[in-house]
Design a protein around this nucleic acid. Sequence first.
DNA 1: TAAAACTGATACTATATTAGTATCAATTAA
DNA 2: TTAATTGATACTAATATAGTATCAGTTTTA
Lengths: 148, 148
Amino acid sequence: MKVLTKNTDYAIRALLALAAKKGSYLSAKSIATEHDIPYQFLRRLLQEMIRHNLIVSKEGVQGGFMMQKNPDEITVTELIEIFQGKVQVSECMFRKQICSNRARCVLRHEIMRIEHVVQSEFEKVTIGKLLRDLEVVNQVSSKATTIN
Amino acid sequence: MKVLTKNTDYAIRALLALAAKKGSYLSAKSIATEHDIPYQFLRRLLQEMIRHNLIVSKEGVQGGFMMQKNPDEITVTELIEIFQGKVQVSECMFRKQICSNRARCVLRHEIMRIEHVVQSEFEKVTIGKLLRDLEVVNQVSSKATTIN
DNA sequence: TAAAACTGATACTATATTAGTATCAATTAA
DNA sequence: TTAATTGATACTAATATAGTATCAGTTTTA
Ligand code: FES
Ligand code: FES
């Protein structure tokens, strides 16, 4: 069971790149090259993120993409929803014969509770937080002898 | 993002049917019919569950499948692992350029923490628990006027 | 003892989702 | 004016999910 698809994975990495260069434009090409993301694939993701007002773009030479939304307010939950749809455990696990009363269904509540937990865990993880974590990692590893 | 696939969904429902008739054999056909599960699909799932010692079978006329493992010890996590593979957030989200030191990686820990949360939430939900919940639902709905 | 009701095993097809590629028009800086 | 860029969109490929079909073997029972 894979929780994050490439869509989301790539989007997060692109956002980290953009967040790190906050205030200036980065081209899709440079992001693709640096982070090993298929160029055209990445471009689609970037456009989707524009539509959701996470980033903005500038066309033409010296153009590119720039962070728009505050990285601390971009949650992994939001990205999952954009690229993989809302988290849902099961459309309705026990329909028909088994579950006779949807309105009162205890199971449904159980399912919704889990959906909630999963969502809120991913909500704790923002692009801002990831970026700061990342800086720590890179600081440590540049000081220490890196054994990978 | 769909957390449970049909595999798991159907498997849970079949197990609930078997758990409810603990001690006697239920044929694949009867389960399929009652719970609206494609017959041949269900049979594959049942065989898989035999291999994992959740249920046992008896061949021939009057044969079928019977609960083997204690329903309270069958977790949804286990079923997800059988039918959808182990929960993994991302194989390794920030490899190469970004993540220079895998061993110390904060992000990796973050990811593993979430994997853990998701897993343990689903671990709280056992077939036994679902069955008891279900009985409550059906009691309530048979007393009340069912508005679906 | 033969037919019917079953499971075991496995191969196959269909559909949907995910991943990746290609193309061309429009914009803009130099 | 040209090269570097995004906007938009259509396409293909690969993989995962869902569902079907078939045949052999076992067991009850008439
Ligand atoms: S699980 Fe869907 S209504 Fe009960
Ligand atoms: S995220 Fe994979 S090693 Fe850091």
